[in-house]
Design a protein around this nucleic acid. Structure first.
Lengths: 331, 331
DNA sequence: TTGTATGCGTTATCAC
DNA sequence: GTGATAACGCATACAA
């Protein structure tokens, strides 16, 4: 079933059908006949034939580390919502945290198999940059700031600073920090720097033994909490760079009857709808993930439409929401 | 950058390049030259040109109600994992719970814009069936059993029966049930029937006032818990057809100082990784969502490959995992 | 083993 | 307003 079949059934030429499909000049009469045939047959034009001719795929490629993640699926939700308004569809590049697969998808998308790319990034290597530089379609990066490319990211430094400050204001002296891999600029370096800078600004001693790196996971948080709390008994707060890790810390403290926040306060960057149901409710920083999906899509579409005055929308840093709950002891 | 450019650069004809790309007969010499050019240029063939010629898109369309859902994103994870093994990509039809959009995507996918469809279904209307009947590409339905089409779904009736039985064995007499819309066969009707049948089998009185319908959401659970517990004081257990609703019930009970499980037991179908962190830990039924994504993809690929002996893999009913935790009072 | 020619479904150009 | 026709990038039948 193609445009020629429709033309025959409607008794017009395929050009007329094509024009009808693309809002060109078609007489009311032809218009009616064609619509009738389309209704009866349920014809939908082939996107592939169209693409071949127009060079426009109407597809946005989205590359992400893991779709079954609360945060990432929210980003996709935002992207989906926004781009469907403009008649784009999403083609999914789920990399399962493999850098190799990330590169592979970047390569596939690079050469015009899609109109644009949204790249939900974690670690950006030289190899990434090399390929991104060769992109023939526009790309927007989400979650990391990459010089020279449009990106939407979160206030990692600021959020970590404010959380640390909150702990200090509430009389915490020996704050442990469980962070992540420094290859991840946003979640690794920036958050850690916000934490450290705030300690320094408050003239608190900066104790390397109180800073650990884990691997984003709940298990990682559990392990590091164990290391920290078994080796020291003066820790009065644990600040986790990611939400999942704080759940591991929580688990460890429960098992070992360490009271939150009476014995040790706990807080994290990242939130979930369960924060309120867990006991104690967790003091966290909430980011706007769906918003980042929407904003990045908006940028991409603006670029695609050509109405993007280069500079003014290059880097969007989103804010955060400080959710003060029960897991931090306050004065 | 297309196959012709590569041919020129490599000093061969475009057919030779095409053959190279498709594992045809190419001399070692040409092979080398072509590979060199491809490496240098980073060329990736256009999927659209290929599709036009071969009628094979290498795309699987997946239609789902909401990507930012813990259960649904797990299904997509499974689908993604499985189909990428066979070099397919996913095109995402996120309908935001709109039946209209569901129909729209079914129509788009119907006519060969994809090789096959995975439809994560909730409510199946006449309109759905009508369009599915006209599909020109294979479709696999996930989450509902639909006569005449391959599907992968969960043991709704059995799970609800077993959960009810567990409540009864543990001496619960007045069990309230918060269910969902009966238009949803799986989550609405089947679970409710499992509940009711078990009551009857145990000669317990079947009290209509103890059965409520809500709308899947946490807020819905909250509302119905309020209605139930304000109107009656003899209820000793609340069984929710979905996990989200049980969180609402939990919330209500906490606010009103109703002890779980001492005053009223609580349980649900559906689980999350937070079940263990909530207090009290929730007794639930866990389904295998990622598995359903994998299984349905496997079926679809088998159909696409033609090695599907029709009958034997038509309906796959997945099992469940009964997670006995603290929220139900046991003898 | 390689090259030439054709057609897939669509849109855009142009003449009518 | 309409229809004939070329072109998009690729795979493939066929000739060489």
């Amino acid at each position: 079933m193609n445009i020629i079949d429709i033309a025959k059934l409607a008794g017009v030429s395929k050009s007329t059908v094509s024009r009808y499909l693309n809002d060109g000049y078609v007489s009311e009469e032809s218009r009616k006949k064609i619509q009738d045939v389309i209704d009866k047959t349920g014809f939908v034009p082939s996107n592939h034939g169209k693409t071949l001719r127009t060079k426009k795929t109407n597809l946005i490629g989205i590359i992400l580390p893991k779709i079954s993640s609360e945060t990432i699926s929210k980003i996709v939700d935002g992207v989906s919502e926004e781009i469907s308004k403009e008649n784009y569809n999403i083609i999914l590049g789920n990399t399962d945290l493999s850098i190799e697969k990330e590169i592979q998808y970047l390569k596939i998308f690079r050469n015009k198999n899609v109109d644009g790319v949204i790249f939900v990034a974690t670690i950006i290597t030289e190899k990434h940059l090399e390929i991104i530089k060769q992109m023939k379609v526009p790309i927007v990066i989400v979650g990391q700031k990459v010089e020279g490319y449009p990106c939407v990211y979160h206030s990692d430094y600021e959020a970590a600073y404010e959380m640390t400050n909150f702990l200090i204001r509430n009389n915490h002296k020996n704050i442990a920090y469980i962070g992540t891999n420094d290859e991840d600029i946003s979640a690794g370096i920036n958050r850690k720097e916000g934490f450290i800078k705030c300690l320094q600004d408050n003239k608190l001693k900066y104790d390397k033994n109180l800073i650990k790196d884990a691997n984003f996971s709940q298990e990682g948080g559990y392990e590091k909490a164990k290391e920290l709390l078994e080796s020291r008994n003066d820790i009065d707060a644990i600040f986790c760079a990611t939400y999942n890790m704080s759940l591991g810390v929580l688990e460890y403290m429960r098992e070992n009857n360490i009271k939150i926040p009476e014995d040790v306060s706990l807080c994290a960057i990242g939130d979930s709808r369960f924060s309120n149901l867990i006991h104690p409710t967790l003091t966290t920083i909430q980011y706007y993930y769906k918003e980042s999906g929407i904003k990045s899509s908006r940028m991409l579409i603006d670029i695609l439409k050509g109405n993007c005055n280069k500079e003014n929308l290059k880097y969007i840093k989103l804010g955060y929401n400080f959710l003060k709950r029960e897991s931090v002891k306050v004065l």
